[in-house]
């Protein structure tokens, strides 16, 4: 496009920071990077559902960080005199079979949920990224070997494999996390490999090779940054599934053990009272639903912002 383009935004208006961030000639790498992030945020902001999703995730993080302060009662303080109390001004979401405040337990349970999510993401995403980019870049027999291993893991149903691992390692939240992480990485490896193969023959990779860049530098500095965005989107969208798997293991008694206020375990203990005291099981269920929805909305929004195919046009 030549100069007949008439910009009505974004430069020229807005505050000082706005203008600094959108400067067409940034003065440092730092400013350029921040400007790019800010532009992404401006695009993201236009998707209202994604902003709601982000709000839910921020609320989850805040609840986890401030749990002891905002929770009205301690999570594990039984009071049998008020067991299975319905919703009231004292206990907004009622109490469970041991008279513990459900709201407080959900708030404290957010820590466990976040713990699972973060650990799975830290373990599974980098493993998948590394295996996928190396396989895609190297090609040949290394690609064959790595991808067949990936296929083996991919062939097991997720929950069954997790069950097998937990059965072998013993129940507990850490083992549940390891089990979920082991089943979560293969799709990421697949995505990263597919992206790498399309990038591998790009001219900018050839140019870097002609400068003498070795495979490690190429994969780390040139290939991975381009795989990252689709991976982030996928991981975010997978979060809902990971929460559900963790809750499922908890429900089956193989994840977090009582009296930990894990949401899945809470539903499990509430199912005995399902018909008469429905809130005991329903409230943690709603929490799982809302957080899963939040991650899905956020993932959709991120896809719009980060999708590399829409870039540079």
């Amino acid at each position: 496009m030549t100069t007949q383009v008439k910009y009505t935004t974004p430069e020229g208006q807005g505050g000082r920071y706005h203008r600094w961030l959108l400067a067409s000639a940034p003065r440092s790498r730092y400013q350029a990077r921040l400007g790019r992030a800010y532009q992404a945020w401006l695009t993201f902001r236009q998707n209202r559902l994604a902003v709601i999703g982000l709000g839910i995730i921020i609320a989850l993080v805040a609840a986890a960080a401030l749990a002891p302060i905002i929770a009205p009662y301690p999570p594990n303080a039984p009071d049998l005199s008020i067991r299975l109390a319905p919703m009231s001004a004292e206990h907004w979401l009622g109490t469970d079979e041991l008279g513990r405040d459900i709201l407080s337990r959900i708030i404290h349970g957010s820590r466990l949920t976040l713990y699972v999510i973060v650990l799975v993401a830290i373990i599974a995403a980098p493993v998948g990224l590394l295996i996928g980019t190396v396989a895609g870049y190297a090609g040949g027999w290394l690609d064959m070997v790595l991808m067949r291993i990936t296929d083996i893991f991919l062939a097991f149903p997720k929950l069954i494999l997790a069950l097998a691992f937990v059965a072998a390692l013993g129940p507990g939240i850490e083992n549940a996390i390891i089990a979920i992480a082991i089943t979560a990485w293969p799709p990421y490896a697949r995505i990263a490999r597919a992206e790498t193969i399309t990038i591998r023959n790009a001219d900018f990779i050839k140019a870097a090779r002609l400068q003498g860049a070795g495979p490690a530098r190429l994969i780390w500095g040139h290939v991975m940054p381009l795989c990252l965005s689709s991976l982030i989107v996928r991981v975010t969208l997978d979060m809902a599934g990971i929460i559900l798997t963790a809750a499922g293991l908890g429900f089956l008694g193989l994840g977090a053990q009582p009296p930990l206020p894990e949401w899945g375990a809470m539903i499990s203990s509430g199912r005995k009272f399902m018909l008469d005291q429905w809130w005991v099981a329903a409230m943690p269920g709603i929490a799982i639903f809302v957080v899963s929805l939040g991650f899905n909305l956020l993932g959709d929004g991120l896809r719009d912002v980060l999708d590399p195919k829409a870039e540079g046009q």
Partner: peptide, 23 residues
Amino acid sequence: HKKVQMVFQDPYGSLHPRHTVDR
């Protein structure tokens, strides 16, 4: 590689889209 360098045809494909000119 220090001695021999190359310039490619497509200026849209030969620069890394996530790197600044400086990088």
